[in-house]
Design a protein around this nucleic acid. Structure first.
Length: 378
DNA sequence: AATATTTGACCGAC
DNA sequence: GTCGGTCAAATATT
């Protein structure tokens, strides 16, 4: 641990270095460490250019160690994939260094060269995989200066969920709506559609007992004007912060969007809960403006302004927006508004919904949404 | 200045 | 008394 700080020399610059120094991210050219409760990031390139200390890109709020948890194997989706790639890169480099020491310099030169070639290939492939993954996350950077210097990982995650409440561009969200009489209905929104074009306004936030993240409360923006009673609750999943649970309550009675038409008052108080988990690359394609706004809002722009190299830009996006799950969906109450996944097919039995439903989606949207889970409302 | 968000207070259900 | 949901004043953002 201390070696990490030592290796980086100036990493302790301007910070109270403690025994707690943990490598959070390392990709050859750049590295992130956790020292004294602060997430520090710096690239070799920057160091070459004479930068003295690392950039402080986040901090640990109180006892929260969100990223540490993720690094230890928690989390899921694209963020975890990225971390696993980084880990594999690191292991490859370590193996490389180890073999360089173990293999005799002269005698087995040919074998050493072969091993070296294989390892280099592995390393290169991992770098490309990571770059490809990160490219989908690079949605902003180099933006104007922000007022706040640091955001904790939990804050970023929480605000991602909050921002999702306002996300308008469509993504694939699917599930089954639950009617007041207990019957259910399958709903689906297409990736690339505009989803619901309603505008939502946040009216509250509440810490929920036993939940790591607060629940955000939204109502239709035209509620005051038209009396529309539609609401939705957005909450990040404890198990996977990149996953959002969105509960829709009531139906729109406003005509703020052209279609589908407003539902009947009898549909009020319907509830449906969908759980979405979207890879950053899909979200980037689906909601570039929203995500960019999110990045602008949360990435410490003082850092972004002074470190605009591609590597740092990607790293900042990667580190601060682990997977900006951003989704929008609604319970559509009119039959025929959306196509059935399989016309005529009956919905899976409750016990089978989890597996069967996922399978269906994966079959249809494998290249777009790798993970989508339905969960009935409480 | 207008609009949106935040957050402590309040309320009803349990 | 506790908890989730909502209100509304304060604050932040555009």
């Amino acid at each position: 641990m201390a070696a990490v700080a030592k290796e980086w020399g100036e990493c302790a610059h301007d910070l109270r270095t403690t025994a707690v120094a943990r490598t959070m991210f390392s990709s050859g050219m750049s590295r992130m460490v956790l020292i004294g409760g602060a997430y520090l990031s710096m690239s070799w390139e920057e160091r070459q250019r004479g930068r003295k200390g690392p950039k402080r890109v986040g901090e640990v709020p109180g006892s929260t160690h969100a990223l540490a948890g993720r690094a230890a194997g928690g989390g899921g989706g694209a963020a975890t994939t990225g971390w696993l790639i980084v880990r594999a890169q690191k292991s490859t480099n370590q193996l490389k260094a180890l073999l360089a020491k173990l293999l005799p310099a002269g005698g087995a030169a040919q074998g050493a060269a072969a091993v070296e070639a294989i390892l280099s290939d592995m390393s290169e492939a991992l770098s490309e995989a990571l770059a490809s993954l990160q490219a989908g996350r690079t949605m902003g950077g180099c933006r104007r200066r922000r007022r706040r210097a640091c955001w904790s990982m939990d804050e970023v995650l929480q605000r991602s969920a909050a921002a999702a409440g306002q996300c308008r561009e469509g993504v694939v969200v699917s599930g089954e709506g639950i009617r007041a009489d207990g019957s259910s209905r399958r709903i689906m929104l297409q990736f690339g559609d505009r989803g619901d074009s309603y505008t939502w306004r946040k009216y509250g936030q509440k810490d929920i007992l036993g939940a790591r993240f607060a629940r955000n409360y939204y109502r239709c923006a035209c509620a005051q004007r038209s009396g529309c009673s539609a609401r939705k609750h957005v909450q990040q999943s404890d198990d996977d912060p990149t996953r959002l649970e969105i509960t829709y309550i009531g139906a729109h009675t406003c005509d703020d969007r052209p279609s589908p038409p407003a539902t009947s008052p009898a549909d009020d108080e319907q509830r449906s809960t969908v759980v979405s988990h979207l890879p950053a690359v899909a979200v980037a394609a689906a909601a570039p403006s929203t995500v960019r706004k999110l990045v602008e809002r949360h990435v410490p722009a003082s850092d972004m302004m002074e470190a605009c190299t591609p590597s740092m830009e990607m790293e900042a996006s990667w580190l601060l927006i682990p997977s900006p799950a951003c989704s929008q969906s609604e319970l559509l109450s009119e039959a025929g508004e959306v196509p059935e996944l399989r016309p005529g097919a009956s919905p899976p039995a409750p016990a089978e919904r989890g597996k069967a439903w996922d399978g269906e989606l994966l079959a249809l949207y494998d290249s777009v949404v790798p993970d989508l889970v339905w969960r009935p409302s409480a």
